[in-house]
Simulated assay, not measured.
Amino acid sequence: MKTTISQRTIFEDIFARSTEDWVSDGEIHSLVMTRTGEIDPTTARSMALGVIVERIMREWMIPTTYNTSWNIDPWEAVRRIEDAWWKGRDRVGYLDIVQFIPTSEALEVGRAVLRGEDWDA
């Protein structure tokens, strides 16, 4: 059965997007706001951070700076992201501090999502 982009879960959408390029923390924040309809940026930030934490802890996404892996403990990566988000929340672009590259398992999920939508994957 063919699916559409609007039927994707947030996680599926992240993985599908990551088949072509890395996904930034700002992109995940925007995706959470769009998909949930949450208009309060603080609430959406907390929700997006939850998505990021789960994906890092389950080893689906690798935090990087322009494709250079941070090579640190996952909890330290989460702490750095959270710290930067809350300290910089009053400036434009504060969300774009990290890019995530998918693990091979996440790429497979993303490709399966795209195949289900009849995209070339």
Rank of each mutant, 00 (worst) to 15 (best):
S46Y: 04
G88T: 12
I72F: 11
R111F: 05
G88H: 11
D90Y: 15
L95G: 04
P41W: 09
L107N: 09
T64Q: 02
E82N: 15
K87N: 15
T68H: 09
G93E: 11
R35Q: 13
L95C: 02
L31V: 01
R111S: 09
R79P: 07
T65H: 08
D96V: 01
H29S: 03
S46L: 02
T42Q: 11
I39C: 07
V92R: 14
P102N: 10
I62G: 00
V78R: 10
I97L: 12
W70K: 06
W85H: 11
N71R: 14
A77T: 02
E82V: 05
T34F: 10
V51K: 02
L49Y: 03
A77Y: 02
T64N: 07
T34I: 06
R45G: 08
T42L: 11
E108F: 01
L107A: 05
M61P: 00
V53G: 01
R45I: 06
H29D: 06
R45Q: 11
Y94F: 15
W60Q: 10
V98W: 04
I52R: 00
E38W: 07
G110P: 03
D83H: 14
P41R: 13
I39N: 14
V98A: 08
V92S: 14
L107H: 13
F100L: 04
V78W: 08
T43I: 06
W70D: 05
P74D: 06
M33I: 02
R58I: 03
A44I: 11
V109R: 07
P74S: 12
W86Q: 12
D40M: 04
E82S: 14
I28A: 00
I39H: 13
P102E: 07
A106K: 02
D73G: 04
P102K: 05
R89Y: 13
V53P: 00
S104W: 13
T103V: 05
V32Y: 09
M61S: 01
N67Q: 10
I28K: 00
N71S: 10
W85V: 06
A44S: 14
S46G: 08
W60K: 10
Q99Y: 10
I72E: 15
T34C: 06
A106M: 07
I81K: 01
G93Q: 07
I72V: 15
W70S: 04
I81F: 00
E82P: 08
R55Q: 11
T43P: 01
W86T: 10
I81A: 01
R55W: 05
E76C: 02
E38F: 01
R79G: 12
K87C: 11
E59W: 10
L107K: 13
A48Y: 00
G37W: 08
